[in-house]
Design a protein around this nucleic acid. Sequence first.
DNA 1: CACTATAATGACGAAACGTCACATGACGGA
DNA 2: TCCGTCATGTGACGTTTCGTCATTATAGTG
Lengths: 249, 249
Amino acid sequence: MSPRMLSPQEFEKREAELISISRELFERECPSTFTIDKLVDASPYSKGTVYKHFEGKEDVMMAVCNACFRDLRELFEKALTFKGRSREKLLSVLVSYIIWAKLRPYQLFIVLSAHSPNVTANTSEKYQQQHHECEEQMMTLMCGEIAKAVEQGDLVLSENMTLEQVTFALWSATWGSMALIISKGTSSQLQAMELERETFTNGRLIFDGLNWKPLSSEMNYKETLNRIVKELFSEEVAELEKMGTPFSY
Amino acid sequence: MSPRMLSPQEFEKREAELISISRELFERECPSTFTIDKLVDASPYSKGTVYKHFEGKEDVMMAVCNACFRDLRELFEKALTFKGRSREKLLSVLVSYIIWAKLRPYQLFIVLSAHSPNVTANTSEKYQQQHHECEEQMMTLMCGEIAKAVEQGDLVLSENMTLEQVTFALWSATWGSMALIISKGTSSQLQAMELERETFTNGRLIFDGLNWKPLSSEMNYKETLNRIVKELFSEEVAELEKMGTPFSY
DNA sequence: CACTATAATGACGAAACGTCACATGACGGA
DNA sequence: TCCGTCATGTGACGTTTCGTCATTATAGTG
């Protein structure tokens, strides 16, 4: 009655394999040259099989983006183990995000590209859905931390302001600075905005704008940055140093 | 000696025509379906001629993006004619930006897409250069206004903080909220972030974070919004109403 | 050892790309 | 008026990528 059914497990495993291969391809050469045909060549499967998993290259990009999101969430969880005031913990998340971006520029590239309307317009329901789940998990994680800040009295939410909105504000401000700075590429003309500096500035302004205590005027967050790097990300920072793109703060 | 030399004026004129046709194409159907072949068909020129102007479709996108930037600059200049405190004038710019985005969603789409690494990586030197000029003009315009705010004492820049950084902070925070909200498309899942609300929130937080007087706690900016809409953009807001996507603030 | 339902394959036609050999036509000179 | 020249315009063509689907391979069943 049932000849050779492919179990969902096997299917998932193969999908993970394809995503892993795609990530390698993205790393090796510019993500914009990625094609389904290249993925097929690089994989042990045929075109038809690959198309069983992805409707097109946008789908692959979104799938890779989702994988990155999962990595990021783990990273953020590590960042949140920092012992300190609520605002310091969120700063730690920001630090981890920037370090990740510098360590894996191509993955940032993918994550940003995947949010381009051009890509989202051509992504299948499945991966769109999956992406929303990723975002929601991220939201939940952050909202939880912000809720703690409110509990501890460091942050007082004005009426009409939800936890989600606070998260979104931080997220989008960070996102914007990264997207704009990355898109300038290497040909940064006159206005030399710096990834670390602008991202931290945006974060600081949002924190202060929220009146999240202690304000940047009341505390030396440079100290905090030192501790975050030393206690949590010394390995990554050393690697960045070795790569010639040091984490400067 | 010189048979039929094409004057730079004619060349520019034809380019403007091609860009105009491209904009129409982008409006008519989803920008992601745009192809050079379609542009060739829609234009009175041949493929070879079109390729004289653009190296590929990314080039066309960037050219259209730049045209949008020029429109935006005009719009911002109009917004800055608002009579009021410095922070109110910048808020007016924000309002005009949001109205533009709602009025011409496909153009926002293009502008956002054009900043995707996928596009910038495949744009010719010429249009990359042109884009930097557009950005610089925008920067100059904004920095000028912020300088006035500093002169008037509404804004005190902390040490190590340049006018450009202030502009960048506002710009990127706005950018981020628009990019993230647009990329969700119509399938906004659970977390229903609203374009106007989040963009204004981000702006407000940045303004307050900069300690730009009067703070949102010291003044009712709702009033200002009413005046901005009434005095400068009543026509546009009426049109949005007619389109079924009212400007809600 | 067939038989059968399912999965895997890759050849194929369509679409888009980008180029280049050739056509066109404006101008100056005869 | 006609001709030769050369910048400009043209679109057919070879190439790449896409996405499909008729065909082949295979695991399990009786």
